[in-house]
Amino acid sequence: MRIGELAERAGTTTRTLRYYETRGLLPARRADNGYRSYDEGDLRLLEEIRTLQDFGFDLEETRPFVECLRAGHPAGDACPASLAVYRAKLDELDGLIERLRSVRERVGAQLARAELEALDCPAPRCARSVAEGEL
C-alpha cells in the first residue's frame, strides 16, 4: 500500500509516517515507481507505536517494541528490551503517583486549614466574601 492509504488506515498523517521513517521506526521501502511501499506488518508497527504513546510512552521508548515486531515476534513486548522499557515506565509511573499523593495531601491540609480560618472569620466580612466568591 502507499503512504496515503497507510496513514488513513493507521489514523495518522503522511507527515507523521515520514517522520517515523527518519527516526528509523518505519522502513523506507520504495516500489519500482519510486513511491513508498508498505504492508500489513508496517500497519502493525504503527498500531504498536500508537498504543504505547496512548499509554504515555515517548517515541524513543517505542523502539524496542518496534524492533521486537520486526524481528518476527507476534507481539512487540515479547523481547527482553521491551520488558525493560515496561519496568522503567512502571517505575516512572509509581514516582508520579507518589508525587501526586503528596501534593493531594498538602492541598487537603491547606483546605482544612482554610476551612477552619473561614469559621473564625468575622461574620459581616465572611458573609460578604462568600457572597462575592472571595473565599
Score class of each variant (00 low, 15 high):
residue 27 P to Q: 07
residue 51 T to L: 14
residue 115 E to P: 00
residue 92 E to A: 13
residue 101 R to P: 01
residue 110 Q to S: 15
residue 41 G to D: 08
residue 5 E to T: 15
residue 76 G to F: 03
residue 22 T to L: 09
residue 104 R to Y: 03
residue 31 A to L: 03
residue 64 P to D: 06
residue 77 D to A: 06
residue 106 R to M: 09
residue 15 R to D: 11
residue 50 R to L: 13
residue 61 E to M: 15
residue 113 R to F: 07
residue 89 K to V: 04
residue 72 G to M: 04
residue 123 A to C: 03
residue 48 E to R: 15
residue 39 D to K: 06
residue 102 S to M: 10
residue 83 L to F: 03
residue 134 E to Y: 00
residue 51 T to V: 05
residue 57 F to R: 02
residue 50 R to S: 15
residue 44 R to T: 14
residue 105 E to W: 04
residue 96 L to M: 14
residue 28 A to S: 15
residue 78 A to F: 00
residue 89 K to R: 14
residue 93 L to H: 04
residue 107 V to C: 10
residue 122 P to Q: 03
residue 82 S to N: 11
residue 55 F to C: 14
residue 22 T to E: 15
residue 109 A to R: 15
residue 65 F to Q: 06
residue 46 L to Y: 04
residue 60 E to C: 06
residue 19 Y to Q: 09
residue 38 Y to T: 12
residue 124 P to H: 03
residue 54 D to K: 15
residue 89 K to A: 10
residue 19 Y to S: 10
residue 38 Y to V: 12
residue 31 A to Q: 07
residue 30 R to I: 01
residue 9 R to I: 04
residue 66 V to E: 01
residue 122 P to T: 01
residue 129 S to K: 06
residue 111 L to E: 13
residue 114 A to E: 13
residue 78 A to Y: 02
residue 58 D to N: 15
residue 119 L to N: 10
residue 121 C to K: 03
residue 14 T to E: 14
residue 57 F to C: 03
residue 134 E to P: 01
residue 120 D to L: 06
residue 67 E to G: 11
residue 20 Y to G: 10
residue 43 L to D: 10
residue 116 L to E: 15
residue 122 P to M: 05
residue 90 L to Q: 12
residue 62 T to L: 02
residue 23 R to Q: 15
residue 12 T to R: 07
residue 74 P to N: 04
residue 134 E to N: 07
residue 18 R to T: 08
residue 24 G to P: 12
residue 101 R to T: 10
residue 7 A to H: 12
residue 66 V to Y: 01
residue 3 I to M: 13
residue 61 E to N: 07
residue 115 E to A: 11
residue 63 R to T: 02
residue 132 E to M: 09
residue 36 R to C: 09
residue 129 S to A: 14
residue 48 E to H: 07
residue 21 E to N: 07
residue 130 V to F: 07
residue 123 A to P: 02
residue 121 C to R: 11
residue 133 G to W: 01
residue 69 L to P: 04
residue 95 G to P: 03
residue 40 E to H: 10
